[in-house]
Design a protein around this nucleic acid. Structure first.
Length: 293
DNA sequence: CGCCAGGTTAGAG
DNA sequence: CTCTAACATGGC
């Protein structure tokens, strides 16, 4: 079987990161089997199925289906590097967090836990919209139906592996078909609007990557359905800005409330104030606060 | 049953 | 610029 490897950064706990990847039993975009994760991607018009697991200090990538041509290998390795955030040196974050009351214990408990990214911007924005104003369990139910219905599929050894639906296909979907999956009218409209923006070339990860943080955020928020929370979520999970974080996030507020033993949730101003201490590492501060829940 | 959920928008003040 | 109602439905 064709394989390749990727170097691992020092602070990297594969088991902790797998924990994140198994948080919903309804996930169709990857499959965790024991101590490895299997995922399907499309590159160069070809479906490539691969598995990832750590072997003696490196990540071992096994190509299970699809030609591991040089181009495909590069694409998959780049994807995995972004997915698992293999290029961030967490040392400065851990040094800062060790002095912080809220983060101190969390970074000790979850050392090596990383932000599992969403390298695909269309997937990232669509997933964020699905998660808006509903609980995560239901968001996964909606995503499950959406991917199962509209994503391409590959059978391999008795299991199905899915690709996230293509923007062009989603843009052409009717309101009714999405409502039948229990999307609200609002989610249906937002998802189709985002898909249209990708399909007609108005929005692309490549283009937004050229822009500075604030400018990229402004451009993202021009899309109907993408507010401050969603834009920051994408900047954090897809563009990997270490200073991006979803200020309005309900889970983040609950984490702060719990750890600070408050009787109410913090106001946006209080969250802003707290996060001044985390300047430059807001994304990772958010990750560890989320993990505390 | 009631409250809340990984929010956003349009409209009012 | 800030504040608020409406959206819409499952999970616990």
């Amino acid at each position: 079987m064709p394989t390749t490897t990727l170097p691992l950064p020092e602070a990297f706990d594969f088991s902790l990161n797998l924990e994140f990847l198994t948080r919903s039993p309804r996930e169709l975009l990857h499959r965790v089997e024991g101590h490895r994760v299997i995922k399907l991607l499309k590159t160069g018009g070809e479906k490539v199925l691969f598995s990832v697991r750590p072997v003696s200090g490196r990540l071992l990538i096994e190509f299970l289906h699809g030609a591991p041509s040089p181009e495909n290998r590069i694409y998959i390795k780049k994807y995995i590097t972004e997915w698992f955030d293999l290029q961030t040196d967490l040392t400065p974050f851990y040094q800062m967090a060790a002095k912080d009351k809220l983060l101190k214990d969390l970074i000790a408990r979850f050392y090596g836990y990383r932000i599992i990214g969403l390298p695909d911007l269309f997937e990232s924005l669509t997933w964020a919209v699905l998660g808006q104003q509903i609980n995560l369990a239901f968001a996964y139910t909606l995503k499950h139906r959406f991917v199962e219905q509209f994503g391409e599929r590959l059978f391999y050894k008795g299991e199905s592996y899915y690709l996230f639906p293509e923007p062009a296909l989603v843009a052409g979907l009717s309101d009714e078909v999405l409502l039948s999956l229990q999307f609200s009218r609002q989610k249906s409209l937002y998802v189709r609007t985002i898909a249209e923006a990708f399909a007609n070339g108005d929005v692309s990860k490549e283009r937004l990557s050229q822009l500075a943080f604030e400018e990229a955020k402004v451009q993202l928020m021009k899309i109907k359905g993408v507010g401050n929370w969603t834009a920051n979520y994408a900047l954090m999970k897809t563009f990997r800005y270490p200073n991006a974080f979803p200020l309005e996030d309900a889970g983040l507020h609950n984490a702060i409330k719990k750890l600070s033993r408050m009787s109410r949730k913090p106001t946006l101003e209080e969250v802003r104030k707290l996060f001044e201490k985390y300047k430059g590492w807001e994304a990772y501060a958010t990750l560890y606060l989320w993990k505390s829940l």
